[in-house]
Design a protein around this nucleic acid. Structure first.
Length: 106
DNA sequence: AAAGTGACGGCCG
DNA sequence: CCGGCCGCCACTT
C-alpha cells in the first residue's frame, strides 16, 4: 500500500538503465541499492511493479540466469519472447549471463 | 510492536 | 553436477 520508500524507485530507475539486449540479476540490483542481501527485497519490489509494461522487469533474472518472473499464468513465455526479441538467446528459460548480464557500475 | 513472508544468493552435502 | 538449507533485508498484516 505504501510505496513511499526510497528503495523502490531506485530499483525501477535501475531497470531503465539496462541497455537494450542486456539483462540484470537481482544481485546486481541489490548491490546497486547498497547491499547484496537486499536481493530478496528486490524481488518483492519487482513483484510490486506498478508498471510492468514500462519497467523492463522481464530483464531481471536470478543469479543462475533463470527467468523467475511470474507474470500471471504462463507469462514467463512472453518474457522469453521479449528477451529473444532483443537479441537475447533464451534456452529453457535460461539466459547466458556470461554474455547478457549487465553489471552497470558494479 | 512483533511475527511472517518473499520474483533471492551463497554455501554445504 | 544437482538439490537442499540457512541467512539477509524491507514490507505487510
Amino acid at each position: 500500500m505504501n510505496d513511499n520508500k526510497n528503495y523502490r524507485p531506485k530499483v525501477y530507475e535501475y531497470l531503465l538503465t539496462i541497455p537494450y539486449g542486456k539483462v540484470v540479476t537481482y544481485k546486481t540490483i541489490a548491490i546497486h541499492l547498497g547491499d547484496i542481501h537486499l536481493a530478496r527485497y528486490v524481488g518483492s519490489v519487482l513483484h510490486s511493479n506498478p508498471r510492468p509494461d514500462f519497467y523492463p522487469c522481464y530483464k531481471v533474472v536470478n543469479s543462475k540466469g533463470k527467468l523467475a518472473i511470474n507474470f500471471g499464468d504462463g507469462g514467463l513465455t512472453i518474457q522469453k519472447e521479449r528477451l529473444e526479441k532483443e537479441g537475447i538467446v533464451v534456452i529453457d528459460n535460461i539466459v547466458d549471463l556470461k554474455k547478457y548480464e549487465y553489471k552497470g557500475k558494479l
